[in-house]
Design a protein around this nucleic acid. Structure first.
Lengths: 185, 185
DNA sequence: CCACAAAAAGAACCATGATTCTGCTTATGA
DNA sequence: TCATAAGCAGAATCATGGTTCTTTTTGTGG
């Protein structure tokens, strides 16, 4: 069969990546084998290697997926007509946490301490999220608190830093709290 | 040679555990081999297994060591005659962060998402640190801010939670910032 | 509907690395 | 000081798991 249509090819890639995320979520980045992933996604090892150069490549894709999803969820708030203030913003973010993804997120933190490629993904996503928080808080300061735009931007930066920090800590807590969730092994 | 004297035996154990922490710090929990640790501590594989049941056991010991050291550092502040307030407390804690240990700390977070034994160590140490923060802040509220002891204790709890969260986030940042620190491999 | 090159399956390969085993070595208690 | 049982080194073992290869099966463009 000549090269798969782009749509189909992308479908396969996400099918694999999502299965990988599920595996990572329960067994960790290093302790999930390719065999685990084949079992989870219903494809064979050879097939996975047709879509991803190697396991490290797949891990990168999974990390991007998880982190990007969290960043995306945040994007919606910034554009809202009635921007939430810091407390409201934080509690909404916390409410949106998915335990399985939180686990993989925290795993990527651990991985990024020794893996430059993952590290880059993590800091990039973190910076992006913080910037979105800042924009959101700037909008709130201007629209709700009636600050001057220039001053609002100034004040929003440290607030964003703080909200981000508290959110990340909460992410850690949900990763730690969530049940062991054993697989049949 | 009959059983080593207890002091000597403990010496060996810490010699190994500290070498392990250095290795973990640069290569991560899973990617450091026993061979790496033998090279770092100057002992042989067989010798390591005479002191630790297996690698998992060694990882637990290393995790305890790193987390306990951070908790200990905190203990001193609580007993100070002029207890620091929340801002001062936080900046002292941040100033005391050692990048190498921060990396291992964050690695243990990742590990604890899938490893119950490590998870228990992490939540135990976290709870312990939070309790110490609370005591410290209670002392501050009473001695410096002149609150009633009962009320102070009440107020200190959420403050401690917050300081802990901000500290953990900062720990993550120093783990991410610290240089790649490559080994000769 | 066809032909074919790519995709999928799954066995085979191979490297890595944890653990164990076999003798030397040496610290310890008498 | 000596006998000895534990410590220790280092090779051998053995399992795991990533990657590759071969064969079979399709989806796709013509």
């Amino acid at each position: 069969m000549p090269r798969l249509t782009d749509a189909r090819k992308e479908l396969r890639r996400t099918q694999i990546a999502e299965a990988a995320v599920r595996c990572f979520s329960r067994n960790g980045l290093e302790r999930t084998s390719i065999a685990d992933i084949t079992a989870e996604c219903g494809l064979s090892a050879g097939s996975i290697y047709a879509h991803y150069r190697n396991k490290a490549d797949l891990v990168r894709a999974a990390a991007r997926e998880v982190l990007a999803k969290r960043a995306d969820a945040l994007g919606e708030y910034a554009a809202a007509d009635a921007p939430p203030g810091p407390d409201e913003l934080l509690s909404r973010l916390i409410a949106a946490i998915d335990p399985a993804e939180a686990r993989v997120g925290v795993q990527t933190w651990g991985e990024s301490t020794t893996n430059p490629a993952i590290r880059d993904i993590v800091v990039d996503m973190t910076d992006r999220m913080r910037a979105m928080l800042r924009d959101c808080l700037t909008a709130w300061l201007v629209k709700v608190e009636h600050h001057e735009p220039a001053e609002a931007r100034e004040r929003a930066t440290p607030m964003a830093h703080r909200v981000m920090a508290l959110y990340q800590a909460e992410l850690l807590y949900s990763a730690l709290e969530s049940p062991p969730e054993e697989t049949a092994s």
